Simulated assay, not measured.
Amino acid sequence: MHTKNIITAGKDISEAKKVLVLLHGRGGNAQDILSLADHFPLDDFSVFAPQATNNSWYPYSFLAPPAQNEPWLSSALEILRNLLEEIKSKGKASENIYFGGFSQGACLTAEFVTRNASRFGGVFLFTGGLIGDKIDTENYKGDFAGTPVFIGTGNPDAHVPVERVNKTAEIMEKLKAEVTVKVYDNKPHSISQDEIEIANKLVFK
């Protein structure tokens, strides 16, 4: 099970107008993903980066049957649920809360926001999609109410099939998110400058 360990950057939440939650990938850490914040216009933001126990949110592929990734997957979602409630308790409305992640962190971000769809400030998923060997649409509820979402991915990608990215976009759109997907031919499993620039235009507009 994950231990709560959240690294912060930017403004103190009491002074910030907005909040960004960043989720690192498998083998990465909160400090790594926080360096991404330097590439976004976050002058008025408080930034939160939870740290996964043993640097992994769940042990197997995101395409494994969810039961194989338990209890880690549920524990990771609980960390995020508690963090979201904590941020809201500081007076921050959902529309001023943003989420983003890379790889395993992007998959966890997709899963969390789509299970708890609301009008968020924006969401970016750098190479990720909804979790599970099959998509159980019963898990996804709420109304994104026009939340801008950007998903960037490579084709092929060693971990995330384009089909899953497209299915993720479709489900998010049904919950009224404004989703933009960009597929890059033969992009390495990493974050590109182009993805950062698109996220800046679409998510932090």
Rank of each mutant, 00 (worst) to 15 (best):
Ala110Tyr: 04
Ile97Asp: 04
Tyr58Asp: 06
Ala49Ser: 12
Gln51Ala: 14
Tyr58His: 06
Asp32Pro: 00
Ala110Met: 06
Glu85Leu: 14
Phe99Trp: 14
Asp12Leu: 05
Thr53Met: 07
Asp12Gln: 11
Glu86Asn: 11
Glu111Pro: 03
Pro66Leu: 15
Gly100Cys: 11
Ala52His: 03
Glu78Tyr: 10
Asn55Val: 00
Glu95His: 09
Ile97Lys: 04
Leu84Gly: 03
Phe40Met: 03
Tyr60His: 15
Asn116Trp: 09
Arg26Trp: 09
Pro50Asn: 13
Ala76Lys: 08
Phe40Ser: 10
Ser61Gln: 05
Leu77Thr: 10
Asn29Trp: 00
Glu15Arg: 10
Phe99Leu: 03
Phe45Thr: 06
Ser89Asp: 12
Ser35Leu: 11
Glu86Pro: 02
Lys90Tyr: 11
Glu86Met: 01
Val113Leu: 10
Pro50Glu: 14
Glu85Tyr: 09
Ile87Glu: 10
Tyr98Trp: 09
Asn82Lys: 14
Ser56Val: 15
Ser46Ile: 01
Thr114His: 11
Leu77Asn: 12
Asn69Ala: 10
Asp12Tyr: 01
Lys90Thr: 14
Ser74Gly: 15
Gln51Thr: 10
Asp12Ala: 13
Asp44Pro: 07
Asn69Arg: 10
Ile87Thr: 10
Leu42Lys: 06
Asn54Asp: 15
Arg26Pro: 00
Pro66Lys: 15
Asn69Gly: 12
Leu22Glu: 08
Leu22Phe: 00
Arg119Phe: 01
Ser118Pro: 00
Val123Asp: 03
Arg26Leu: 12
Leu83Lys: 11
Ala37Ser: 15
Gln51Val: 10
Lys90Asp: 09
Ser118Met: 13
Ser14Ala: 13
Gly101Lys: 14
Leu22Met: 07
Thr53Pro: 09
Ile33Thr: 04
Leu80Gln: 08
Tyr98Ser: 01
Pro41Ser: 04
Leu23Cys: 10
Ser14Tyr: 13
